[in-house]
């Protein structure tokens, strides 16, 4: 039997994880030289606070990309969770638990159905999750009739707006989740299964790994983290908004891919996604501060993402000899 790809690619993935941090440092240095405001302590804290939304959502997307899939329904889940949580809380602290539990349940259910369609009914992940995105977003529209109402409870504000020892709580939540999940994915059996399934599902099946369950669980993780990210974002803004999830449709994938996770599966890590998230957040903040028309900003963003991925692919090739 051929050795599975997952084991042979582990050193390579470490290599890629390293590369994203060079890209983050390079971009940050460039941005700080061009716009010194980027270097201020206040801006560092601000970046940490707003990066957390994308960061938490992208943890889930990492799992899906690692198993060789893609999740385009995260955007819909973010919107639905924002709408549901605010409409259930209606500003009252006693409703927080109910709102959070319901959102978690709905999100896990969405992930479960995604996984089921992909594994049992063999629908491609792209089509499954894109349709699911429409379905979930559509249900948010139907639920609200286009007019979302409600707001968060003041007690819930701490999660998205609070500070602990001067550091934004959102950043603390994000980094704690990302580091612990990142560590667990590299050091637990479940984590190894994820990599093995992504690298070669047939080989993984022959090794006795419950491939379908692993795939379904990856989509559930993706929805779960979309839900957690949405709750933090909802706490940050306090209100329902039907367009709130749209921004994550592709940025969550960009953050993971820039972080060194391969779209083909089996290669990458949550640690890389932390770097990828910082990269995307610094980039959008930087292009915003240099006061250029939005068209130029989009062009710059596209160019810098493409260049950075290209550059560290080249670095990695040289290193591997």
């Amino acid at each position: 039997m051929k050795p599975t790809k997952s084991f042979s690619t582990l050193p390579e993935s470490f290599n890629r994880i390293g590369a994203v941090w060079f890209a983050v440092a390079g971009l940050y240095a460039l941005a700080s030289i061009h716009s010194p405001a980027m270097f201020q302590y206040g801006q560092v804290l601000n970046l940490l606070q707003v990066a957390a939304f994308l960061g938490i959502i992208a943890i889930g997307q990492t799992f899906v990309l690692l198993v060789g899939g893609i999740d385009l329904s995260q955007a819909g889940v973010v919107t639905l969770v924002n709408i549901l949580s605010t409409s259930i809380m209606v500003g009252k602290a006693e409703n927080i638990v109910e709102a959070v539990i319901l959102c978690l349940f709905v999100s896990l259910f969405v992930g479960f159905i995604n996984g089921l369609l992909i594994t049992i009914f063999r629908v491609t992940p792209l089509i499954t999750t894109l349709s699911m995105n429409s379905l979930v977003y559509g249900s948010a529209l139907v639920y609200t009739g286009g007019m979302p109402h409600g707001k968060i409870a003041p007690a819930f504000e701490f999660l998205g707006q609070g500070h602990f020892l001067g550091i934004p709580v959102t950043g603390i939540v994000w980094l704690t989740l990302a580091i612990s999940i990142g560590y667990a994915s590299l050091h637990t059996i479940y984590g190894r299964w994820i990599y093995a399934v992504g690298a070669n599902p047939q080989a993984a099946r022959l090794m006795g790994i419950p491939v379908n369950s692993v795939l379904i669980s990856a989509y559930m993780m993706s929805s779960l983290f979309a839900c957690l990210g949405a709750l933090v974002l909802t706490s940050y803004i306090g209100l329902p908004s039907l367009g709130i999830g749209d921004q994550f449709l592709l940025t969550s994938i960009a953050a993971v891919v820039v972080g060194g996770t391969a779209l083909t599966g089996g290669v990458g890590s949550v640690f890389g996604t932390i770097g990828g998230t910082l990269f995307i957040t610094i980039l959008s903040s930087y292009t915003r501060l240099i006061n250029q028309p939005i068209g130029i900003q989009f062009m710059l963003q596209g160019l810098i993402i493409a260049l950075s991925v290209l550059m560290y692919r080249l670095v990695q090739k040289n290193r591997l000899g």
């Binding site: 980027m38 601000n46 940050y236 367009g243 915003r288």
Partner: peptide
Amino acid sequence: AFEPCNWQEDKAKVIMADMIAA
């Protein structure tokens, strides 16, 4: 700056936070 916020509070808040820091 002249920045798009898609007529959404959350986007406007994130953009303004950047501006405040800068």
